[in-house]
Computed example of a mutant assay.
Amino acid sequence: MDQAHSRALEALQPFIHLTTSSTASSPRFVANIIANATSHPNTYVFAELLETSAVQALGSADTPEEFRGYLKLLEIFAWGTWQEYQETPGLPTLNDQQALKLRLLSLLSLSSTIRPLTYQALMQALSIPTAVKLESLVTTAIYSSLIVARLSPATNPPTVNVTAVAPLRDVRPQTVSTLISILSEWEGRCGDIINGIEAEIAKIKDQTVRNSILKRQCTLALEKAIAADMDGGEDNTGLRSGGRNTKHSLRGGRTAGGIRFGGSSTGGNISNKREYSDDQDDDDDDGYFDNASDGGLDVSGSRMEIDEGAGASRGATRQTKRLLGVGRKT
């Protein structure tokens, strides 16, 4: 669609050069330029030609009446419609190329204003008597890249579905203030939306920072808790280990405390001890055996019991047992 606008501007340039030349002083000459420009098959924009001084001079009181209508005609080609041409008196008669051009330009304007774009509405606005001629006009507009449309003659009512329109119509000067107010309102709405988006972005960033700080605090608290637990575990382990060693020492003292060895080489505890006990004949101990005369172990405060035998009831021979009593009361 932008290419169509570029081609239209390029096609209009020769006519603009003619109106700005020194020979464009005659109203007839300028009117002839307007007639040729509006009949050219590739010209669809006319605002640049309309702004030239030679064309604007046609509206002065000194211009003959037969040429004044060309200024209004060019304005209708720039932003008007076929219906406006039909309702305006005193305008020049159009040739076939001009009539086709004005109907095509009017189709662009009607495509943006009429919904739905029915065959009947277009035929009435463009003064087209039959549906076949209307379809031919729409087909020409499609192949000229003026619109993107699809004909639907089988629908009820038959319609023309236009999806895109080329930007080839000029803006009417009276509507500029209205367009400015519309665009200003649209700009204000866009500004409000942008401010709202920026406020949401600021909130998200602030919440992200808060979440990061909270996460860091939770991580530090967890690390401190783990470190404190590890320190307490080591202290408790030491206490438990010390308690077990103390208990073991106490038990060892109770176990070996009844036997004291005079020699320093024994270390105070007996690693190998033998205990001979006879639960049945413990009361028949008849003496003590002192092993100090042997030059071996020096047993202090200990006594050795010798069992004379199991008695007649057992019917066995006499057995000698040695008992190293630990903490036994005599």
Rank of each mutant, 00 (worst) to 15 (best):
Q319V: 08
A57D: 15
T155H: 06
A47Y: 07
A31Q: 06
K321N: 03
D235V: 15
I204E: 14
R318P: 06
A37L: 03
I128S: 07
A8P: 00
T219E: 15
A11V: 02
T208K: 12
E234S: 07
R115I: 02
P129A: 14
V165A: 00
S53W: 09
L73Q: 10
G253N: 01
L12T: 03
F289A: 15
G80N: 02
A316E: 01
V45C: 14
G232S: 14
S112N: 04
G268F: 05
G262N: 04
Q207F: 02
T139E: 13
T113Q: 14
A312K: 11
N36D: 12
Q120L: 12
F29W: 10
V299E: 02
R240S: 10
W186Q: 09
P157F: 02
K215I: 09
Q98E: 01
K224P: 01
A35S: 12
Y44W: 13
S184C: 03
R318T: 10
D282G: 07
V176G: 04
Q83M: 07
T159V: 10
G188F: 04
E51Q: 15
R274E: 05
H17A: 10
I226H: 06
N95L: 02
C218V: 11
V209K: 14
T130W: 05
K215C: 12
D170E: 08
V171K: 09
I270V: 09
A227W: 03
A221M: 14
T175S: 15
Q86A: 09
S277I: 06
V176P: 04
S313V: 11
P41F: 02
I270H: 01
Q97T: 02
V30Y: 09
P41D: 08
A141T: 06
I128D: 11
D282I: 09
L105T: 04
A149G: 06
G242C: 12
G258N: 13
T175W: 04
D2W: 01
T175V: 08
D62H: 13
L18D: 07
R150P: 00
S136C: 01
S265T: 06
A125V: 00
A78H: 03
D2K: 03
G315I: 01
P89Y: 04
A141G: 08
N156M: 05
R103M: 11
C218G: 15
K224T: 09
K101S: 11
D283I: 13
A24M: 10
V209R: 13
A78E: 06
G263A: 13
A24Q: 08
L323D: 03
Q319L: 05
